[in-house]
Design a protein around this nucleic acid. Structure first.
Lengths: 191, 191
DNA sequence: ATCTGTGAACTCGTTCACAGCT
DNA sequence: AGCTGTGAACGAGTTCACAGAT
């Protein structure tokens, strides 16, 4: 849209986001927006439909647990990146890291998590604590009303079925890349 | 093994890593290690088999491009975590961030990437640069001999088929969690 | 011609379920 | 009884391929 393009075809979208034209059309079917065979999809309306489908109009606020290196990096990264998704509270058990404002986000002691998350009705939690504490933190978040979790700790979380967990295991990702790099070198990649 | 357990059954492994017994057995089939119906899998031998399958005995060394918040956090995170996988060189285009030693890892200007990665035969690259620079960096890495990439930039990379790319889009993960959190709230989760 | 929307086919990882073993 | 190894069935996401529209 910034480039002044009014209409776009599925194969153009596919090229941009690294997919196939068929997959783009399939996904847009789910969104419910219908293009025209002549002009493809109207960019402005398409964006609106996608926003309507994906975003909450009033925005969603996020809690982050674990203000270590990774937690800090995420706070910096998300500041002002997605207007509809902002990290509004950070928690840590280390008293040193607590009761400050980091990248525009207030940090609290872990003991106040239930209170803050509950009162502010935060529904999404990011876990960046060591693996051993992840499950405890997850349970705390869930009890406080969180329904979606992004878990950076290399530990599988056990949560009730109404809670969605997105696992982001950095070590695992690196190991995967290392594995396939090695296999492609030896030429043993599965055929 | 640290707990002195000598043998373990597939359903026990499954419970630990959040999978099903059937899946564990399937995966171990691929590894090639065979357990016994009486005693299950011998922990020590199993670990050795997995290491043999997954790891390179001589270890693999990794390059990191983009010494921002996220890059720094990753450097700190991986220091001494996986002995067989160490980040040995970091790169950035910002002269301020360069020619230092961060968490035991030397940082170089981007212009030296080809030289350093080539000479040290680094095969794995981590990309933590802004989205707009990711493709350029990826090409540079591939030209220098990298065969496995972990990409944190929210941009799909175009690479030759012998290069494996693991995409780790933090924003996307958060959006996914937010989406499903919202759906589970409204009770509209697909049935 | 060229594009969309979509039923049908396909792919590939997961799960079932059971023979074989002790 | 309880476990493993594995052929077979299953299922969810992807791709094919074509009718319909202009």
């Amino acid at each position: 849209m910034d480039e002044g393009v009014r209409n776009v075809y599925s194969h153009q979208i596919a090229a941009i986001c690294g997919a196939t034209a068929a997959r783009v059309r399939r996904d847009l079917m789910v969104i419910g927006y219908t293009g025209s065979p002549i002009h493809g999809y109207a960019v402005k309306e398409l964006i609106e439909s996608i926003d309507l489908f994906l975003d909450s109009p009033e925005g969603q606020r996020v809690a982050l647990v674990g203000v270590g290196n990774l937690g800090l990096a995420l706070l910096a990264y998300f500041t002002g990146r997605r207007p509809k998704l902002s990290i509004v509270a950070a928690f840590d058990k280390d008293p040193e890291k607590v009761n400050r404002v980091v990248h525009g986000c207030r940090s609290y002691p872990l003991s106040q998590l239930r209170e803050v998350v509950g009162q502010q009705r935060l529904e999404i939690g990011i876990i960046t604590v060591p693996a051993g504490e992840a499950q405890t933190v997850a349970e705390l978040l869930v009890e406080s009303g969180v329904r979606g979790i992004v878990n950076f700790a290399p530990a599988p979380l056990q949560v009730p079925p109404h809670v969605y967990v997105e696992e982001l295991d950095v070590t695992q990702a690196l190991e995967k890349a290392a594995y396939f790099a090695r296999k492609s070198r030896v030429g043993e990649l599965k055929t």
